[in-house]
Design a protein around this nucleic acid. Structure first.
Lengths: 205, 205
DNA sequence: GTCTATACGGAGATAGAC
DNA sequence: GTCTATCTCCGTATAGAC
């Protein structure tokens, strides 16, 4: 249903060599994350790629589509997590644990695009559409947490909504510091998130 | 030592009525948080205040100082937390708990300014100075966490650096969703953060 | 403390050549 | 697929009147 084709064709392109849409979008996303979307000019993207401003318009109709392609990719990957069998066919507490780990995985794999998604403020209709999809995803995970709390798998003295926000904080903030070329692997990161979320830092007696 | 005076004079100003620096900065910060610093124009700030662009230059030498005043205020409040007696003169685990709660308090009290601080990307020397102060604060809290881990007050199977990042995520992300006019009070929020951080979500048997 | 008028550069986007 | 040239609008900042 998305208006933006992902253009992920692994087949070698024919014709004159040069950039394809994915490469242009990737360069744009890096700059959007550094300077903000609105403050990033087409000239900056062109300089980064070593081509002229107008050449970008061959790959994409305008600046906003550069953002839209990246946001669509990020939110689609997150949505896909909830459709996986492991996120649907288990006891609630195991489903929640799986989803938290999977969210960390998507964040790491799609770090730039998800970073961009999390920074969108809803200043245009397109941004609001992306935020709405994100909000639906957040709600689905919140429902999972509430279900787990009602089943007795989670402590009952905390508000599920607040818990959801705080867990999302732990995970979403990963985009602000994680570096794929660093020493920490995604699996260890997921383990740490789950460890704190379920058991906390105090040693168990 | 900051180059930017805070201009917090509660005494009524004399002379011609109009805005003072604090009011101009407050309006600017709201817009910076919505559109990003670079994408916010002096014209947008002027429109918000109902004055002309050039009138702003009476209160502040330029756009960058609007940012600097806000960042200085945010980081100063955070730094002050670590100087409080309660953050220095107790067992490490109690000091850590106090600091986490106090960070939540500062975030809530200085929500707009701290939000802005957390979104700075280091694109100018001034932004990098603010980030350096923030980094020093983060390091001080990280040292506290490491000290608590070594003393046995925290479990030893998690890397203190990763723990620090995840705890900062829970807290810093509060700027993305907390609304002061909402039903959740700062004390409850601090309690929830501490509860998850130390004990996690699993019921204790 | 605020205004109007203006300087000057850079923004997104298009036309049309190669 | 990329280029140069150009359109039109908006950016920060300044000068000087009230």
């Amino acid at each position: 249903m998305s208006a933006v084709p992902t253009t992920s064709k692994p087949a070698p392109r024919r014709g004159r060599p040069g950039y394809d849409q994915d490469a242009v979008v990737a360069a744009a996303v890096e700059l959007f994350n550094r300077h903000g979307y609105e403050a990033t000019s087409m000239g900056m993207i062109a300089d980064r790629l070593g081509i002229s401003k107008s050449a970008i318009y061959h790959h994409v109709p305008g600046k906003e589509q550069l953002l839209e392609v990246a946001l669509d990719r990020a939110i689609s990957e997150l949505e896909a997590v909830l459709d996986r069998p492991a996120a649907r066919e288990r006891p609630v507490d195991q489903r929640l644990e799986y989803v938290l780990r999977a969210m960390v995985g998507v964040l790491v794999d799609e770090l730039s695009n998800v970073t961009l998604l999390l920074r969108v403020r809803g200043n245009t209709p397109m941004e609001r559409r992306a935020m709405e999809r994100r909000r639906a995803f957040d709600h689905a995970v919140a429902d999972l947490i509430e279900e787990a709390a009602k089943s007795g798998a989670l402590r009952s003295d905390l508000q599920p909504r607040v818990v959801t926000r705080l867990l999302f904080g732990m995970i979403n903030w990963i985009t602000e510091w994680y570096r794929p070329d660093g020493p920490l692997r995604r699996e260890e990161l997921g383990d740490s998130v789950v460890a704190i979320a379920f058991d906390g830092l105090r040693p168990r007696g």
